[in-house]
C-alpha cells in the first residue's frame, strides 16, 4: 500500500515537473524578450524589416520562412513516408527487405543534423544551382527550396514510423471482412486500413511537421540567411530557428538579443498552437471520436 502510494507520488512528481519545466521555459522567454516587446510591441510580429544595424527588428520574414520550408518539406516527404509506412506496415511486415527499410529509415533519424547540413551544402546546393541556371533565375543554390529538400529527408522517419505502427495495428478481422466482401488489396487499404489508421498517420505527420519547424542546424547551413520576405522558393531566406542560431553569437546590443529571444517566443507559441490544433484534429478523426 505504502509503496503504491510512493510510486503514484513519484509518477505525479515526474509529470508535474515536465509541465513546470515547459511553463518556466515560456516564462523565461517572455521575461528575456520584454525589452523587445516594450520597444516594438505586437507590430514586431507583422513587421517586414529585420535590420540589426539600424536596430529595427520584426518577425514576419522568418515566420513566413519557417512555415514555407516546413509545409514544403512535409509535402515533399509525404508520398515517401506513406509509401514506406504502407509497405512495411501492411504489405511486408516481416522479411529481409522490410527490416532493411525499417533499419534505414530509423537510421535517418539518428544522423546528426549538421551532417545533413554538410550534405546539403556540398551536394544539393551545386545541383540546385545548376537547376536554377537552366531556369534562368539567379543561381543562389541556397534558399527555401534547398532547405525544404534537406528537411523533407530528415522528417521521413518521424512520419513513417508512426504511420507504420498504426497501420500494422489495424485488426486483421477488419481486413478479412473487407477481403470476404470481394475487395482487392488496394480497396482494403483505401477503404478499411486508411480510414482506421488516418488519425495515427496524421499524428505522425504532425510530429514530422513540428520537427521541421524547429530544425535549426541543417536549415541554417543551406537556407542562405537572408533577412527578408522571400518572393520565390529559390530565394535565400531565414527561418525563426535559423536566424536565432545565425545571429545569436554576434548580437551585441541588448535590443538585438532580446529581439532574437522574442523570435524564440514566437516559435514556441507557433509550435504550441500547431500541436494543440493537431491534437484536436486527431481526436475528431480517431475511430471512436465521433458518432
Amino acid at each position: 500500500m505504502l509503496r503504491d502510494r510512493f510510486f503514484k507520488f513519484g509518477l505525479k512528481l515526474a509529470g508535474g515537473l515536465i509541465a513546470l519545466l515547459i511553463f518556466s521555459i515560456f516564462v523565461s522567454l517572455v521575461i528575456a524578450s520584454i525589452p523587445s516587446i516594450k520597444e516594438f510591441g505586437l507590430s514586431f510580429v507583422f513587421g517586414k524589416e529585420w535590420n540589426p544595424v539600424e536596430e529595427h527588428f520584426s518577425a514576419l520574414p522568418f515566420i513566413i520562412g519557417t512555415l514555407l520550408t516546413s509545409v514544403l518539406a512535409l509535402a515533399i516527404s509525404l508520398p515517401f513516408s506513406l509509401a514506406i509506412a504502407f509497405f512495411s506496415g501492411e504489405f511486408s511486415k516481416k522479411g529481409l527487405i522490410s527490416s532493411l527499410i525499417a533499419y534505414a529509415t530509423d537510421l535517418l533519424a539518428g544522423i546528426p543534423s549538421v551532417i545533413y547540413g554538410f550534405w546539403g551544402l556540398f551536394f544539393l546546393v551545386p545541383l540546385i544551382r545548376k537547376l536554377e541556371l537552366s531556369f534562368n533565375i539567379p543561381p543562389y543554390g541556397v534558399g527555401i527550396f534547398t532547405a525544404s529538400l534537406v528537411l523533407s529527408i530528415m522528417i521521413i522517419p518521424y512520419a513513417s514510423s508512426m504511420a507504420r505502427d498504426v497501420i500494422a495495428l489495424v485488426p486483421s478481422d477488419l481486413k478479412e471482412a473487407g477481403f470476404a466482401l470481394g475487395s482487392t488489396r488496394l480497396e482494403v487499404i483505401k477503404k478499411v486500413i486508411f480510414p482506421y489508421s488516418v488519425s495515427g498517420i496524421f499524428a505522425g505527420l504532425l510530429l514530422a511537421f513540428g520537427r521541421a519547424i524547429g530544425e535549426t542546424m541543417a536549415v541554417t547551413m543551406v537556407i542562405g540567411n537572408a533577412n527578408r520576405i522571400p518572393h520565390s522558393l529559390f530565394e535565400p531566406a531565414n527561418t525563426l530557428a535559423s536566424v536565432i542560431a545565425n545571429e545569436f553569437t554576434e548580437a551585441t546590443s541588448d535590443i538585438h538579443l532580446s529581439s532574437l529571444i522574442y523570435l524564440g517566443l514566437i516559435l514556441f507559441i507557433i509550435t504550441f498552437f500547431i500541436n494543440y490544433i493537431g491534437n484536436m484534429i486527431i481526436e475528431r478523426m480517431s475511430v471512436n471520436g465521433r458518432s
Binding site: L174, A180, G182
Partner: peptide, 15 residues
C-alpha cells in the same frame, strides 16, 4: 468472394 459471403466469429462491422 462476391458470390460466397462470409460472417466471422467475432462481429466485425467497420468501425
Amino acid at each position: 468472394r462476391k458470390k460466397i459471403g462470409m460472417v466471422f466469429q467475432r462481429p466485425n462491422p467497420f468501425p
